[in-house]
Simulated assay, not measured.
Amino acid sequence: MKQQAFWLPVLAVMLAGCTPRIELAAPEAPITINMNVKIEHEIHIKVDKDVETLLKNRSDLF
């Protein structure tokens, strides 16, 4: 019985030393997101000959 009384606190101290510790810390510098985006587009329109001549003759339509 005396041996159990001795080993029980020793075992408890040893197990307490093995418990994992998790720590969360915020970063010191703020998080930056660089959003440099270059957007280019081209529109190709295919038209009939009649519409093409109409657009050439009547430039005031658009």
Rank of each mutant, 00 (worst) to 15 (best):
E28A: 15
S59Y: 01
P27N: 08
K46R: 07
M1H: 09
T53F: 04
D48S: 15
N36Y: 00
N57W: 00
D48C: 13
T19Q: 13
V13L: 13
D60N: 07
S59Q: 14
K56Q: 15
K46E: 06
E52R: 09
I43R: 04
F6V: 15
R58K: 12
I39L: 13
V51E: 08
V47C: 09
K49G: 00
E23N: 07
P9V: 03
V13K: 03
R21H: 09
I31C: 03
W7E: 10
T53Y: 05
A12L: 14
N57K: 12
R21W: 05
T32G: 02
N57S: 07
H41S: 14
L24C: 09
P20L: 02
A5C: 03
L8G: 05
R58F: 12
A29F: 05
V47K: 04
V47S: 07
N36M: 03
T53S: 02
K49S: 07
Q3C: 00
R21K: 14
L61V: 10
V10T: 13
C18E: 02
V47M: 13
S59K: 13
V47E: 08
V51D: 04
I43P: 00
V51P: 00
P27Y: 05
N57E: 11
A16C: 05
F62M: 11
Q4D: 13
D50H: 08
V47Q: 05
K56M: 05
C18W: 01
K38T: 15
W7L: 12
G17S: 11
P9K: 02
E23F: 03
A29M: 10
L24I: 08
H44Q: 13
I39Y: 09
T32W: 00
H44M: 08
V37T: 06
T19F: 10
L15M: 09
A29L: 14
N57M: 04
I31A: 14
D60Q: 11
L61F: 09
F62R: 06
L11C: 10
I39H: 11
